[in-house]
Nucleic acid binder design. Structure first.
Length: 595
RNA sequence: GGGGUCGUAGUUCAGACGGUUAGAACGCCGGCCUGUCACGCCGGAGGUCGCGAGUUCGAGUCUCGUCGGCCCCGCCA
């Protein structure tokens, strides 16, 4: 699209245009001033082109005045570079623009950091000047991949009869789930909207309304603590469909994912492998296993049931278990490396590790002299230790052990390079329990959410044996990351009320919070179900970034602040008054301290 | 709520056991340089060592607190 500013993008120039007069606009990335000859590299979103001037050139003087990141328009003739001076690293490396006119469109102050892909700059500096950080080619590429993923999603789903519908951002606070972000209402003082944790209820209502197939690339909000893969606001590819069985629905989703990843250059095999929640936890210690390598967790509780070791016995008496794994292909494991592992294990909640090594029919390690013969041979057999191989043992409450050992497993995956670069494993995790027991709250809570349908054959156990009831729920896992999850929904008001009552949500509360949903389910709700994908995580995986902040244009810090805009920030007394809000003084202020 | 880690020039970092004037590279400013492409060479400016206490004759260095970035546990249906 030619304009006054450009006839071409810089990256489009080539020998085919030799001799033509072109105009390019962009930023000055490099200046090589030889006193006589001056070279500039001018960059735009498409790439770089070299501009050259010598003392006889028109606008030679302006060329000498240019500084890094000035915005310039250059006009001149496309020339083949003199033989021997081509630069094969750039697609435009065999040509250059002989300057005839240089226009400085805008100057640029000296930069807070160099805008280059390989400049390692502290993240707080990058976030403060995010607009400069985003000027780096890698960041633009990350967001381009994100754009492609969104486009592929919209194309595929539209082509398959799904309709994109927007749902409210100002909505109602609901119990269950994450903490809500609240928005005070001016018109109804003392009342609050909540930002949606997901469009969950609305998409189900759209199914009741007969939309049949819905999707939305939806912003979601959860006021919980942040992680490398969690932001307070994030984007879901949100989908809901009616009149599809679980199998049919999963099949559509596999095709969608094939399309998205295909667009991004990643081929995958269908149908996806499946694993039950129970098997995933037992074998990998997590419900989002990376199945590209083995190193399965083994239960050694039986082996050590009569252990004389106090740490083992005490842990098991208080309901704990002993589990272990064998790092595949681990040969050398120096004391220093061992302490690094132990440090890492502590940080993920493991009390301690026992590191053992098989030597002949014996085990060597810190605690092994307390092992009986049967315990030694049992450990060797259960972990499958060959001579000279290492084993890692840990003891503790099962849940904690699983979390920790699954991390240890990933630690060795990276340390021992167990997964070839570029290989991927897509996986469905299925057969989730409908409920789990929340010790802190003393009640059952939904594993997925309260609208998840129990499996038909388990419904009769709802009241008698709730923890064994399986849900029609599924997670999509890629290389150890949960990238999507969903379920078939309850579409019968009576079943929905039974589930609410199991969750200790009273009739009154259910009516108050979800009355509209219960009503809707009673007005001819079709069988339906859905899924939501974490777009940020998918893009992060595809571009190989270490945090979702790398694929979000303007992300928040771990404390939920934006370093660039300074949000969140105090508001004026007038604003508060209008909303009927009075701030409670912090403890320090109340005590009259200077804060 | 808890654990870990980092904070020194615009940027990335180095600063031995607490010692005299806190260094390097890149960037910035000035000079030289006609085929460079991370151009080269010479010179220069640039520092509240995050902030606040404390120990000490003396603190970038040790102690405590605090603020901020990052990683993790809890939390995130």
């Amino acid at each position: 699209m030619p304009s006054v500013f450009r006839t071409h993008y810089a990256g489009e120039l080539s020998l085919a245009l030799e001799g033509e007069v072109v105009a390019v606009s962009g930023w000055v990335k490099r200046i090589r001033d030889h006193g006589g000859l001056v070279f500039l590299e001018v960059w735009d979103r498409s790439g770089l082109v070299q501009v050259v001037a010598d003392p006889t050139s028109a606008d030679y003087e302006p060329m000498k005045q240019v500084r890094l990141e000035y915005v310039v328009k250059v006009e001149g003739q496309v020339k083949r570079r003199p033989s021997g001076t081509e630069n094969l690293q750039h697609s435009t490396g065999d040509i250059e623009i002989r300057i005839s006119k240089l226009t400085v469109l805008n100057a640029c102050k000296p930069l807070p950091f160099l805008i280059e892909d390989d400049a390692e700059v502290q993240e707080n500096v990058r976030l403060l000047y995010r607009y400069l950080d985003l000027r780096r080619p890698r960041m633009i590429e990350n967001l381009r991949v994100r754009h492609s993923a969104m486009q592929a999603t919209r194309k595929f789903l539209s082509d398959n009869g799904f309709m994109e519908v927007e749902t409210p951002i100002l909505t109602k606070s609901t119990p269950e789930g994450a903490r809500d972000f609240l928005v005070p209402s001016r018109l109804t003082k003392g009342h609050f909207y909540a930002l949606p944790q997901s469009p969950q209820l609305f998409k189900q209502l759209l199914m009741v309304a007969g939309f049949d197939r819905y999707f939305q690339i939806a912003r979601c909000f959860r006021d919980e603590d942040l992680r490398a893969d969690r932001q307070p606001e994030f984007t879901q590819i949100d989908i809901e469909a009616s009149f599809l069985t679980l199998e049919e629905f999963l099949e559509v989703n596999e095709r969608l994912v094939e399309k998205i990843f295909g667009e991004l250059g990643i081929a995958l095999e269908r149908p996806f492998r499946r694993i039950s929640y129970k098997d995933a936890i037992e074998t990998y210690g997590t419900d989002k296993p990376d199945v590209r390598f083995g190193m399965h967790l083994k239960d050694l509780s039986a082996v050590f049931s009569g252990s004389s070791l106090e740490v083992f016995r005490k842990a098991m008496e208080s309901g704990g278990v002993i589990k272990g794994l064998k790092p595949e292909g681990l040969k050398e494991f120096s004391p220093k490396e061992q302490s690094v592992l132990e440090e890492m294990a502590r940080s993920v909640g493991l009390g301690g590790l026992t590191i053992v090594r098989r030597e002949g029919s014996a085990l060597k390690g810190r605690l092994t002299r307390h092992f009986s013969e049967a315990e030694t041979s049992g450990t060797i057999e259960t972990l499958g230790l060959g001579d000279g191989e290492w084993g890692i043992l840990a003891v503790g409450p099962n849940a904690k052990l699983c979390t920790g050992l699954s991390q240890v497993r990933l630690y060795f995956r990276d340390k021992l390079a167990l997964v070839p670069a570029g290989s991927h494993a897509f996986l469905w995790v299925v057969d989730f329990p409908l409920l789990e027991y929340d010790e802190a709250e003393g009640r059952y809570v939904s594993m997925h959410h309260p609208f998840t349908a129990p499996m038909d054959e388990d419904i009769h156990k709802l009241e008698q044996d709730p923890l064994t009831v399986r849900a029609k729920a599924y997670d999509m896992v890629l290389d150890g990351n949960e990238i999507g999850g969903g379920s078939m929904r309850i579409y019968n008001a009576a079943v929905q009320e039974r589930v609410f009552s199991l969750l200790a949500i009273s009739k009154e509360e259910a009516r108050q919070k979800f009355g509209f949903l219960l009503d809707a389910l009673a007005y001819g709700a079709p069988p339906h179900g859905g899924i939501a994908y974490g777009l940020d995580r998918i893009v992060t995986l595809v571009v190989g970034a270490s945090s979702i902040r790398e694929v979000i244009a303007f992300p928040k810090t771990q404390k939920g602040t934006c370093l660039m805009t300074q949000a969140p920030s105090p508001v004026s007394e007038d604003q508060l008054q209008e909303l009927g809000i009075q701030l409670v003084k912090s403890k320090a202020e109340a005590e009259g301290l200077d804060v």
